[in-house]
């Protein structure tokens, strides 16, 4: 099967800083693939390189078997869309939801805007009442729903998700994650999702790559991660850290003694 997205030996260099040092991943059609790592690991850079927003120094990115050039064409953008991390920064502050959703249709010269906008709003659970609001009249979760609607309105097959819920409250995060799973099922989408939160990634993705300092440390299936079947120390450390704070007995015994 041709992978929906394949990245081979990708290098990204910003002013001599090697943000990605030869990264390779393959994502199958309909798969949900996760990228986990801490800040500076290059996980977001990889996502942005796929979207054409980062300077690629060498390596190839292929979409459905076809290599992508330096410049992306409109057909690419109709196929690949992105949802950003910060819902407060990803919506134009002076545009209504209606205008935001109209823009991709206008750029791609799609006629049946009215119907598509209504469908997209319904799909993300906002409804017509939100259509003419400005972004400052929306909550964080509602903004992220609008961002998802904007990404879906061109009917892409691959969605790039850059920490889509890390700026949201836990309860809102659950709603947005459920929504994302729903649209993935309905539209048979392929996800490439970046997150620092192991729990979110294992919940959303079938397979994932752990990244550190611009390299892929380990690629594994989510069930293996959940069962602690990991090989690399770094992955183990991440896994332990996401379990919450553990007081070593020594110090708690000491504090108990002092009290």
């Amino acid at each position: 099967m041709t992978p929906a997205l394949a990245v081979t030996d990708l290098e990204v260099v910003f002013d001599r800083f090697r943000a990605l040092k030869g990264v390779s991943i393959t994502v199958q059609p309909g798969e949900s693939f996760g990228l986990v790592g801490e800040s500076g690991s290059g996980k977001s850079t990889l996502l942005r390189a796929v979207a054409g927003l980062a300077p690629v120094a060498s390596g190839t990115i292929t979409l459905d078997g076809k290599p992508l050039g330096r410049r992306r064409d409109k057909a690419f953008y109709a196929k690949v869309q992105m949802v950003f991390q910060d819902p407060y920064g990803s919506l134009h502050p002076r545009q209504t939801v209606d205008r935001l959703l109209q823009e991709p249709l206008a750029v791609h010269g799609i006629g049946d805007g009215e119907k598509r906008i209504q469908r997209a709003l319904d799909e993300v659970g906002l409804g017509a009442g939100f259509r003419f609001r400005y972004s400052h009249q929306l909550s964080g979760g509602q903004r992220q729903r609008v961002a998802i609607a904007r990404a879906l309105i061109l009917e892409p097959s691959i969605l790039l998700l850059d920490e889509p819920t890390s700026a949201l409250d836990a309860s809102v995060q659950a709603e947005v994650l459920n929504l994302l799973e729903q649209v993935r099922r309905d539209r048979a989408l392929t996800f490439l999702m970046v997150s620092h939160d192991l729990a979110v990634v294992t919940h959303m993705c079938g397979r994932l790559a752990v990244m550190q300092n611009g390299e892929v440390v380990e690629t594994l299936a989510s069930p293996d991660l959940a069962a602690h079947r990991v090989e690399k120390d770094y992955t183990k450390r991440l896994l332990n850290a996401s379990g919450g704070f553990v007081r070593d007995d020594d110090s708690s015994a000491r504090s108990a003694h002092e009290a």
């Binding site: 992105m82 502050p93 823009e103 791609h108 904007r150």
Partner: peptide, 13 residues
């Protein structure tokens, strides 16, 4: 460099 401009770039505008 804000995300909302990146988002429009990603539409192919």
């Amino acid at each position: 460099n804000s995300d909302f401009i990146k988002a429009v770039e990603l539409m192919g505008a």
